[in-house]
Amino acid sequence: MTEAVSALSGFAPAQQLAAEMPRLLGSQWTCGGHAAAVPIGVFSTLHALRTAYEVRKGVQMGGRQPLFQEVFAMLTFALGGGILTALLLGRAQPWLEDSVTVPLYAAIYLLMARAPGDVVYRGLRRLSPVSDVFLASACGLMRGYGVTAAGVDLVRKTMKGQPVADSLVAWIVIGTVLGSGGGILDDVVQFSRRSWTLRTPTMLRGAPLDVKVSFLATVGYIFTTHAWSFAEHAPGFPLAPLLDRALALVPHLTEQEAQLLAGLFCSAVLGTAAQVDAARYAAAERAAAARALAKKTDESVSDGESESVSGGESDSEDDVDSE
């Protein structure tokens, strides 16, 4: 069987970028040209910074919580996809398999919430919406590669030989959950609220953007790489030959090219959404500041009236005494 030709075979820059991107996403901070003593990824740091920033924005508007509770909420958002994926596949929790992830994310939230002068959070707010869009776009790029290489390929390659490795449902579910698990957990258990409570997930009434983006990136990766065919994985499925002919019409991409497109798709959508959300948050901040100012003014007026009444009563008493 001849190997299918990639639809991007004539675009050398795109192929070079696709080949280089995994190395870029895995790059680590260096000091003086030498690798850092602690292996900390650049994009992992950006992801932690963006998650901490979004959690801080939420509690800033909804009411601050105890520090440990805020850190726990941040870790849930940041690591929720990996947590749910490991539970579904019966694997060890990925955040337990290294000594860097949890300390890194917790430390960045401490900087976001307790830095002297609140310099980190105030700096990002001053740079908004540029900061919002940049962090969301970087995390979107990381998410695109996560749902494909760490999601779909985790099932079909790493777990090859097990029944789940040949399940299209497993590929799609794991890819989608890996990209949006933190939001799913918060939707069900309300980790970001002061009081946690189980509730019917709102995503059952309408999937949030994170879920939609992760789902589309996962499905796009599966079908553009032609990783699935009914003849190979489900030959007894009704209309399998017809469905395979329909899938053959999808333009073919190599795995690296499909991962690049998935990353660019997630980055573009989440970056655009971040710009819209930044405008809404800024408007909410201004409204909250206006309410606080109005309340302070009302209290000042009230205090002034009280003092005036008190002074009037004192003058009346003085007049009576003089008479």
Rank of each mutant, 00 (worst) to 15 (best):
R23S: 14
L24V: 15
A294K: 00
S214T: 07
T101G: 06
G312P: 05
R23L: 11
F77T: 03
P238E: 00
F11Y: 15
E317M: 12
M203L: 13
A207T: 10
G236Y: 01
F134H: 05
L135S: 07
A231T: 11
A136K: 03
A282D: 12
L198E: 12
H34P: 05
V100Y: 14
V155L: 04
Y145L: 12
T200A: 11
I108R: 01
A289P: 03
A86R: 02
V219P: 08
L88K: 04
E97W: 03
A290T: 07
F265H: 07
G62I: 06
A207V: 07
V309D: 06
Y121C: 09
T76N: 07
L243E: 06
W196T: 08
D318S: 15
L209A: 14
A279L: 13
S128F: 07
A258Q: 01
A292N: 08
K57I: 01
L104Q: 15
F265G: 07
D166M: 00
G90Y: 00
G312N: 12
T85S: 12
A262S: 15
P251A: 10
E232W: 04
A48V: 03
R193V: 10
E323S: 08
S180H: 09
L84M: 15
F72V: 13
A136H: 01
A36H: 10
A138Y: 05
D98S: 01
S214V: 04
R193D: 14
F265K: 05
R56S: 06
Q162F: 04
V219E: 04
L111A: 12
T101H: 01
W196H: 15
L239S: 06
V169G: 08
V100I: 15
K296S: 15
K160P: 02
G58S: 11
D210K: 05
V5T: 14
P201F: 00
E299R: 13
P129I: 10
G220M: 10
G146P: 03
T197M: 12
F43G: 05
F43H: 08
E305H: 13
A14T: 00
F191R: 04
R56A: 09
V152S: 00
A86G: 10
L178M: 10
A48I: 02
P66Q: 11
V55R: 02
A292H: 03
F77Y: 15
T224K: 06
S27M: 13
Y53A: 02
F265Q: 08
S310G: 04
R280L: 14
A227R: 05
E285S: 08
E3K: 00
L87M: 15
A231F: 00
R50N: 14
G263W: 03
S195R: 12
A78E: 14
